[in-house]
């Protein structure tokens, strides 16, 4: 029988690792703010400003759009990330509790090389590319965002998926301490999204690790998020901890939460409306004026040339 001996030091007196890390974070944040204060016109909320870190050796991409990019401040203070609250400014306010280093990615399912991988090792062996993509939220607003990412196809190939791998399923971190929004059951946590394997292997599909040439801020899905620009924003799952390869179509979070409103495919399609609102047009974020009109939404968010072939013969009204 194992008898526990009471510890001499009360557990309440030991500085736990979180506080120790908080102190380091506090120092880093302080330094970050000093830097920002020296650049006029670059004021951002402290949470956004914290830990901005440049990424080295980023290649340009032929897939980038020429459209005017959305200001950094708008991209990082207006987005959905329910793990940090359901308001669109909540992620920027609350995501500082997320610890992104170290980060482990678990690979499971129909692959030759399952296991746990350090994110750094995966990124180290990949080419970082800047991809300036249009981004279209299912709520009918849009941005143009310069992501920095790695080709999803290249990453997938390294794990050697078998012929039975028909779908790729992604899972977000589940940890209500780091992600306080998970304390409320607004969605069925953890967040799960998935792609058909041919969608995942499309050259447009990337795993983003950066934004505006810098390390991805927490509220934007650090340290690793999906970016498939022809689909509605909610497909682009954030803070990924697990990738699983499956034969059957996985159950995805929004499709399960509202099967009438959110489908598995979620391809941007101006001809198929959300049951409660129109998808024909979108409000462009960051125009700087109250009188800017909505712009027309494009089929597959303007990426029809690259991806329409993936869905030939499919009824896109049924498979929305």
């Amino acid at each position: 029988m194992l008898i526990k001996k009471p510890s001499d030091i009360k557990s309440s007196e030991i500085t736990d690792q979180k506080h120790y890390k908080d102190r380091r974070k506090f120092i880093q944040t302080g330094l970050g703010l000093t830097g920002a204060a020296m650049v006029p016109g670059l004021w951002l909320p402290a949470e956004v400003q914290a830990a901005r870190e440049k990424l080295a050796k980023v290649k340009k991409s032929k897939f980038s759009t020429n459209a005017k990019t959305t200001p950094y401040k708008d991209v990082t203070t207006y987005n959905n990330f329910y793990e940090f609250g359901t308001g669109k400014s909540d992620p920027a306010k609350n995501a500082h509790t997320l610890q992104t280093k170290p980060w482990t990615l678990t690979i499971e399912g129909e692959v030759g090389k399952p296991g746990q991988y350090h994110l750094e090792d995966i990124i180290k062996d990949s080419v970082l590319e800047e991809r300036i993509y249009r981004f279209r939220c299912v709520e009918a607003w849009s941005m143009v965002i310069p992501w920095v990412g790695i080709s999803l196809a290249d990453v997938i190939k390294r794990f050697e998926p078998s012929s039975r791998a028909k779908y790729v399923e992604f899972t977000t971190l589940y940890d209500p301490k780091q992600m306080p929004g998970q304390k409320r059951s607004v969605l069925d946590w953890p967040y799960v999204e998935a792609l058909r394997i041919d969608e995942a292997m499309n050259p447009l599909s990337i795993l983003a690790v950066g934004l505006y040439g810098e390390v991805l801020p927490n509220q934007s899905g650090a340290p690793l998020r999906l970016m498939v620009p022809w689909k509605y924003g909610f497909k682009n799952i954030k803070s990924i901890v697990k990738i699983r390869f499956t034969e059957k179509m996985p159950k995805t979070t929004w499709a399960a939460a509202g099967p009438r409103e959110y489908g598995f495919y979620a391809n941007v399609n101006p001809a198929v409306n959300h049951p409660r609102w129109s998808q024909a047009r979108e409000r462009v974020i960051g125009s700087g004026s109250l009188f800017t009109k909505r712009q027309k939404t494009l089929m597959f968010n303007g990426y029809a040339d690259q991806v329409a072939g993936l869905y030939s013969g499919m009824d896109l009204k049924k498979n929305f």
């Binding site: 401040k73 708008d74 203070t77 207006y78 669109k88 400014s89 607003w141 409000r283 974020i285 960051g286 700087g288 109250l290």
Partner: peptide, 15 residues
């Protein structure tokens, strides 16, 4: 807020 354009990223939605 409208005069100083301090209504967030999506001012129309905010209003």
């Amino acid at each position: 807020g409208a005069y100083t354009m301090d209504l967030g990223a999506n001012p129309v939605e905010y209003l």
